[in-house]
Amino acid sequence: MAIPENKKPIAASQQLDWADLHFFLAVAEERSLNKAAQRLQTTQPTVSKRLAELERRLGATLALRSNSGIELTEEGRFVASQAAAMARSVQHITQEVAMRDREPAGEVSISCPDAMLSYFIAPSVPQLHRVFPSIQLLLRSKQQESEAPADIAIQFHETKRMEDVAIPLGWLHHAAFAAQTYLDLYGGPKDIGEAFQHRMLMHTGYISQPERWRPKQSALQDILDFSVRTDCGTALVALTACGGGVASMPTYVARIEPRLVMLDVGELARIRFWLVFDRERGQLPRVRETIDWLKRVFDPAVNPWFREEFIPPSEFDEAMREAGRKKWR
């Protein structure tokens, strides 16, 4: 006897009904039609009908009844895993969209070079939490390949993604530094050429925007025998401050570590940095408020070492006083 048209299996390529998958997921997780019906606040016949409809659409048996309840077939286990992933996505969409009109709350991840993270962001976190205590920060100094991109990144290149927003945040002015204890023992280089006579320390990530480094300085990075190389900015600051040698570092370190002395060899590089975030995620209240807070943390008006013009450490205090006077005028 011919199978009626309305009973024939429908090709798996046909669009599925999410409601059927939702019902099936409850069956797969509860392993019982009755328990699934209770969970979904409906009747057992309704759940059974939805399951049969999904199986008809897929042309496959997904669940078998047994003495112990429902057992999933191989196809059923696959569909259940995919339906669970879809349910998580639906929940995520609901939460994210709903959060757009609520108070700032939830996790915000920030990726930032370790020295700036330690010396500027971390000490300023209490200021953020006094106003928005429900924002949870995830602070990263390095982006792992297995991790999702940070909500906000502070980086030395603008961005290549069309969906990103890049806001110029400030400038880093690199200069040569050494501890007074080192200078008392060995003196300091009078110019870049004398670097060969000293213990040189280097951050392996500092050669960014190479066109902004003085030509001789950039060439030296390739031919000097460095005593220590490190990818950790805070380690470089600590090592130099303890008399480990001479290092090129941003001028703000003079404000962080009083044992450091800037050598009279001039500015070595002027490096720009940006605040980058996804345009859509930037609309979330928690991300938006965190972005505004980071702008204040790195504001060149109150942090003269982040301005485009070079200001030597000896003039930091006066520049900060002048910024304070302008604020109250």
Rank of each mutant, 00 (worst) to 15 (best):
D225S: 14
F226Q: 09
F226A: 14
S227P: 04
V228P: 02
V228Q: 12
V228W: 11
R229E: 15
T230E: 12
D231R: 10
G233Q: 03
T234P: 04
A238Q: 11
A238W: 01
T240I: 05
A241Y: 00
G243T: 10
G244Q: 06
V246M: 04
S248D: 15
P250C: 04
T251M: 08
V253L: 04
V253T: 06
I256M: 07
P258T: 04
P258M: 03
R259L: 09
R259Q: 13
R259P: 04
L260Y: 00
V261M: 13
M262Y: 00
L263P: 00
D264E: 15
G266I: 04
G266K: 09
L268F: 01
L268T: 00
A269L: 05
R270T: 14
I271T: 15
R272L: 12
W274F: 15
W274N: 13
W274P: 09
W274Q: 09
L275P: 12
V276F: 03
F277I: 06
D278R: 10
E280C: 11
Q283Y: 13
L284P: 02
L284I: 15
P285H: 07
R286A: 14
R288Y: 10
R288M: 12
E289S: 11
I291S: 09
D292N: 12
D292A: 14
W293Q: 08
K295G: 10
R296M: 11
V297H: 02
F298I: 08
